[in-house]
Design a protein around this nucleic acid. Structure first.
Lengths: 250, 250
DNA sequence: TTGACAAAAACATCAGACCATAAATACGAT
DNA sequence: ATCGTATTTATGGTCTGATGTTTTTGTCAA
């Protein structure tokens, strides 16, 4: 987004000068593609002109287009597929990429795990509070089903599925809270968390695993009963007991 | 990050199969550069081999290296400078890029103003709470100075500066809360907010403008006094009174 | 000392070729 | 007709070499 205009960013704030920055042409291509995607002329799944055509339209070389596409791809705005009937497709924006960015940051600045936990305790607690006030009966049912699925996976030792359902549960809570911002943030912090959950599962003993499922069940019930304070407190305890963030190594 | 392994992502979760995905070579280059940067052999500011040399080392063409570099650059891991004595430099990882990613997402899935406001009330309130417990004397001084700057700008009708300082104040609170995740989220929600603040300034009458400055002053004082509950409540009131969110159009 | 100009080192861009992939199509045997 | 295989074709993936642009450094003369 605002990268080209102000690279120094947090630098001095007293001089009215800003670093001269000549726009590289692939940055301009990125900008134009962003505008095109925002214009509403495309829907997720639509195919954009291919690389060669884009180059002609924008009057730039193919490699320039490709460098821009790599950025769009990393931002999760397009998906590129090779082969006949392949091409450049508009993607469904999701918190996924924010999560990837956060994951990268945490990989390169590991000390912030405690910070992430601290944030999650308050954020997820609040989210549960709102979910308890807004969840529809269908959503409550889904939450209970997911809690049950986690219990089953824990009993069966299926770590992968346990992680999958646990993440789904947290995201479902955010959706029940009816707030896109929360959904985005939840997706962002849950993706990097996921491997951590799996790593934990492999080590944790049965009591811990059972506790996870019990926690989720209690949260789901509180949300169903509209007990917002209870949902918040139980979620906070759950997150605190299960930081679930393993070493984000390769 | 985890992009290459599972493009379908949220698809079926019952089969143990994962989509076959041939690794493009620039993805491999990204992976190796990540490893190299994580290895600890480089410090921020160090210069990596130039594009041609990297291509030779990794046995790939220069365009492949460049596509990888665009991604590293977007992730905030390297900085590329042209010219003699230019090259590829290791960057200091920061929450900035997470903020950019979140900003991109919000640009493409604009949340309603109500949703953003609701999130901000709780998020910024909590942030102020932590700031009151952790701010150093220098940070408190900076907060008070920023509040004063806002008051001055409001009195003088300098909307641009008012917005600038207001945003800086909120980010300074996040920094005082000593949590990178909060800083990243704050940066993310403040960027789209900024234009909104300016739009508001042009319309608001003097009393509103003065109230903004008073709010910030009160918040800064509560943080200085270590009154965490007071800081949180005042911040919540401030945000509620000043949603300040224009249309996030181009 | 100053200014103008040339040289050098790096990224930026382009054009074109060729490879790899995956779907569509054609074709031939059953 | 149906199935399986081969060919075609549209697309992205990669490499190469040439050329442009930007920035710093060096040089030389006024």
């Amino acid at each position: 987004m605002s990268q080209p205009p102000d690279p120094p960013a947090s630098a001095a704030a007293e001089h009215p000068f800003t670093a001269v920055r000549v726009t590289r042409s692939f940055d301009e291509v990125v900008r134009q593609l962003h505008e095109g995607l925002l214009s509403g002329r495309y829907s997720p799944g639509d195919r954009l002109p291919n690389e060669r055509e884009l180059g002609e339209l924008l009057r730039v070389g193919r490699s320039t287009v490709r460098e821009a596409l790599r950025m769009l791809e990393l931002q999760g705005l397009v998906e590129v597929r090779p082969g006949r009937n392949g091409g450049i497709f508009v993607a469904e924006p999701s918190g996924r990429n924010v999560g990837d960015a956060l994951e990268t940051l945490l990989r390169f600045r590991p000390p912030s795990r405690a910070e992430l936990l601290e944030f999650r305790v308050s954020f997820e607690g609040e989210t549960a509070w709102w979910a308890a006030r807004r969840a529809t009966p269908e959503e409550c049912e889904r939450l209970l089903a997911l809690a049950a699925a986690v219990a089953e996976a824990a009993a069966g030792g299926a770590w992968e599925q346990l992680a999958e359902h646990d993440v789904a549960f947290h995201e479902a809570v955010a959706e029940a809270a009816r707030n896109q911002v929360r959904v985005a943030v939840m997706q962002a912090i849950n993706h990097p968390l996921r491997e951590g959950v799996m790593a934990m599962g492999a080590e944790a003993d049965a009591s811990v695993r059972g506790a996870v499922a019990d926690d989720l069940q209690a949260i789901a019930e509180a949300i169903r009963d509209g007990d917002s304070d209870g949902a918040r407190d139980r979620m906070r305890e759950h997150v605190e007991r299960n930081p679930a963030f393993g070493q984000p190594q390769t």
